[in-house]
């Protein structure tokens, strides 16, 4: 086959690597979930193999592997996520119980150039962080509802976006 080898190699190789890596990571995730759910019983192993393969195939179809999501990066992000959702829950609980109930709801639009899957992940994450709730996106901008526009909860949004960007192996591109 005659082609420009350098160009061809550069183009196909990283993509294939990303695909294989994603397939492997996702398969591990699904297989792990199956093992936990079935208590790793022996007669559940064979169906689990089929289920894991099917789930990986479906997942790669629904969310093609364009960016490598690394499980270890996800694990490294976990403490920050737990801390954030702890703060979020305490904040909203205090507001709910307080007699004055200090609320000042409002909307902001955040420009966000993450790909679709990552944007949905960011929205889900923001919905569990203090004072922010994502309501989908319009024209590449993420719509975020703020529980209290005076509390400065929106300052966390670029930071979270940068974390999610890092999860898919991107440098921070959020202003």
């Amino acid at each position: 086959m005659v082609l420009t080898p350098a160009l061809g190699a550069h183009y196909t190789c990283p993509m294939d690597k990303i695909f294989l890596k994603a397939a492997f990571h996702r398969a591990m995730l699904f297989a792990g979930g199956w093992l936990v759910l079935t208590n790793a019983q022996h007669d559940a192993l064979a169906p689990g193999l089929g289920v894991s393969i099917a789930a990986t195939w479906l997942s790669l179809r629904l969310l093609p592997a364009r960016h490598p999501v690394m499980l270890w990066r996800l694990a490294r992000h976990l403490p920050r996520f737990v801390a954030g959702s702890l703060k979020g829950g305490v904040d909203v609980a205090l507001r709910a119980f307080s007699p004055r109930m200090r609320l000042n709801p409002g909307w902001i639009e955040v420009s966000c150039d993450l790909p679709d899957g990552a944007r949905a992940a960011l929205g889900g994450e923001l919905s569990l962080m203090p004072g922010t709730l994502a309501a989908g996106s319009a024209e590449g901008k993420l719509l975020v509802h703020l529980l209290d526009t005076d509390a400065g909860h929106d300052t966390a949004i670029p930071r979270e976006a940068a974390y999610i960007a890092a999860l898919i192996g991107r440098r921070s591109q959020q202003a």
């Binding site: 904040d91 909203v92 569990l128 709730l133």
Partner: peptide
């Protein structure tokens, strides 16, 4: 409590998702 006391749908969603997740 947030679901009952908060003024609108979106604020109520804040209360439900964040507090229940922590619970």
């Amino acid at each position: 409590v947030g679901l009952l006391r908060f003024p609108d749908t979106f604020s109520r969603l804040h209360a439900l998702t964040k507090a229940d997740n922590l619970g």
